[in-house]
């Protein structure tokens, strides 16, 4: 399987030290670690939201760390998606308009494929239906639940069909049932082919990923490879086993 993301000796001030890892195409990778270990900083620097002080990051054959701010913005627009812990939706826009926002911007790109407004709306509504939030289009962001809002956020991140999705504590601000729903959607997105790099404190969330990196004091201290669930096993049984595996590994890491 090809490599979609390559991180080489990444440094950020005194927070990250010589971080290197690779992500396979379609992989779902979790980064775990205690507070202050540099998980979110790693995510921002990998995704080109922040500029590292050393090291290199490649998205396929594009060296992200060598791009200008505007080039990085275009990269984020077309090839990356973001899901934030606090959702970060535009307060004055409806749910639908929020979801449409990156697509509308991408539609204005010179030389790009132009889609009509109806096409864009149809695509957004299709995503909303897939993530079970149909009917919320005209609601404001204060009129929906946290889980619904985070699913809308996933819809927004998927509008331009990104190659990789970055999620920073996507379930951190949600209750258990909402967190479960959101994770289901992220796993679904991943299974449909989008690589996902997520940062989490939740071993239950991490256990649904293909691989887990453990970060401590800005360094990768451990890595756990998880096998994908085999066909014929019930999801709950698999989930329980995976969680036990992750918890056991985390105990060994001093979690």
């Amino acid at each position: 399987m090809g490599i979609i993301l390559k991180v080489e000796n990444l440094e950020k001030d005194a927070i990250l030290h010589q971080i290197s890892f690779k992500m396979r195409k379609g992989e779902m990778l979790a980064v775990m670690g205690p507070s202050g270990s540099g998980k979110s900083t790693l995510l921002y620097n990998t995704a080109g939201l922040d500029q590292p002080t050393g090291g290199k990051v490649w998205l396929r054959d594009t060296e992200v760390t060598a791009l200008s701010e505007d080039e990085k913005a275009k990269l984020r627009l077309h090839r990356m998606g973001f899901v934030f812990q606090q959702m970060n939706m535009m307060p004055r826009l409806t749910i639908l308009d929020n979801i449409l926002l990156p697509a509308v911007r991408a539609n204005k790109e010179k030389g790009g494929v132009r889609r009509t407004k109806a096409e864009l709306t149809a695509a957004a509504l299709g995503l909303m239906q897939k993530l079970s939030i149909s009917g919320l289009e005209e609601r404001s962001i204060t009129q929906v639940s946290g889980g619904q809002l985070q699913r809308a956020c996933i819809c927004r991140s998927m509008m331009n069909a990104p190659e990789i999705l970055f999620a920073d504590e996507p379930t951190g601000a949600l209750n258990r049932s909402a967190a479960k729903e959101v994770m289901q959607e992220l796993v679904r997105v991943n299974r449909e082919g989008t690589a996902v790099l997520l940062v989490t404190h939740d071993s239950g969330v991490a256990s649904q990923c293909d691989r887990i990196l453990y970060l401590l004091d800005g360094r990768i201290c451990g890595e756990l490879e998880m096998e994908r669930e085999a066909a014929g096993q019930t999801a709950d049984l698999t989930k329980k086993r995976r969680e036990e595996k992750v918890n056991g590994w985390l105990s060994g890491m001093g979690w």
Binding site: L49, E69, D70, A73, K74, L75, R76, L77, H78, M80, F82, N88, M90, P91, L101, P102, R105, A106, R156, N160
Partner: peptide, 15 residues
Amino acid sequence: HLISLHKALGFTGAD
């Protein structure tokens, strides 16, 4: 915050 968010979503500084 909103400007930063726009940038995170792929809007450029010029946008």
